[in-house]
Simulated scan of single mutants.
Amino acid sequence: MVETYQIAWAAYVVGALGCGWATWLLFRRFGREWGHFFMVSVWAVLLTPYAMKVEPMVMAPALFILVMETLINGFASAKPIAILLAGVWLVALILSLIYQLLTRGFVKNEEPVDYQDYDTVVAEGRKTRRQPRDYQDNLSHDEYQARDELLAGERPMRAER
């Protein structure tokens, strides 16, 4: 049978993973690096377990034990927990950095298109002819540029008029 202890841990882990993804969604607009930094930080702090009792092996989130131990007995008795949390956080950040460096080439970093020259576009190191834009929706060059920047997730350069 599944114990309430296991159900509580499962619910806590699902909630902590949700907090990490919410953090990613909140900070990814500042760049991939910042999104990873904050998401990994939240996951490292929330998901690190610590043994409350050794014999029946009762685990609890290290953050909660750190806070309660500091409030009850002072920081001197909670120092090993703080060191554990800091160590897990640093290892997680190093692994995140390695992952980002290994996958750096796989992320699309498209070159900005020069909207003044509609005849040629540099694509994959060679010049190719580009078809003229269809002006059926009556947008100017600047409006096309702003729309493309919005669709790419950027802030349009000419949004302030």
Rank of each mutant, 00 (worst) to 15 (best):
V113N: 08
Y5C: 04
V13K: 03
I81M: 04
A159R: 13
A10L: 15
N109W: 04
V42I: 15
Y115I: 11
I81S: 01
E111F: 11
R129Q: 12
P112L: 12
G74W: 04
P156Q: 04
K127C: 05
E149N: 05
R126P: 00
H36L: 13
T103K: 09
V122M: 14
K79R: 15
R126Y: 08
F38L: 14
G105V: 04
W34H: 08
L63P: 00
Q131G: 03
D142A: 11
R161V: 07
A159F: 06
Y135G: 05
T103C: 07
W34V: 14
A10V: 09
E160G: 02
A86S: 14
P56A: 04
M59D: 09
M1H: 08
F37E: 10
I65P: 00
A62Q: 05
M68A: 10
Y5A: 11
V14Y: 10
V58C: 02
L93Q: 15
E111G: 10
D117L: 07
T128Q: 13
E154N: 12
L66Y: 03
N73H: 12
Q131M: 08
T103D: 13
A92H: 03
Y135K: 09
L139A: 07
L17P: 00
Y99D: 12
E143W: 01
V2G: 02
I94D: 03
M68T: 11
N73V: 11
Y12D: 09
R155S: 09
T23L: 07
Y99T: 07
M59N: 12
V14G: 11
V121F: 13
V13G: 00
G18W: 04
G105C: 05
D134C: 04
L93Y: 00
W34F: 14
N138Q: 11
D137K: 05
A16K: 05
L97I: 01
F106K: 10
W34N: 08
R133H: 07
L97T: 01
T103V: 08
D137L: 11
D148T: 04
E149M: 09
R129A: 14
Y115Q: 09
H141Q: 14
E110A: 15
G31K: 02
M39C: 12
P132F: 03
R155Y: 10
R104I: 04
S96C: 03
Q116D: 10
E124F: 11
K127Y: 07
P156M: 06
W34S: 12
V113R: 13
E124R: 12
D134Y: 02
V107P: 00
Q131I: 06
A62K: 02
L97E: 02
L46G: 04
T23P: 01
L95I: 06
K79F: 11
E149T: 06
S96D: 08
M39V: 03
L95S: 10
T120P: 00
Y118I: 14
R29I: 11
V40P: 00
L101Y: 07
A92N: 09
R28S: 13
G18F: 02
L93G: 00
L25P: 00
A78E: 03
E55Q: 06
W9C: 01
R130S: 07
R155K: 10
T120V: 14
M57C: 02
S41C: 09
I81W: 01
V113I: 15
L66H: 02
E149K: 02
G125V: 08
E149Q: 15
V40G: 01
R158Y: 15
V54M: 03
V14H: 06
A92E: 02
N109R: 13
L63E: 05
S140P: 01
G20H: 00
R32D: 08
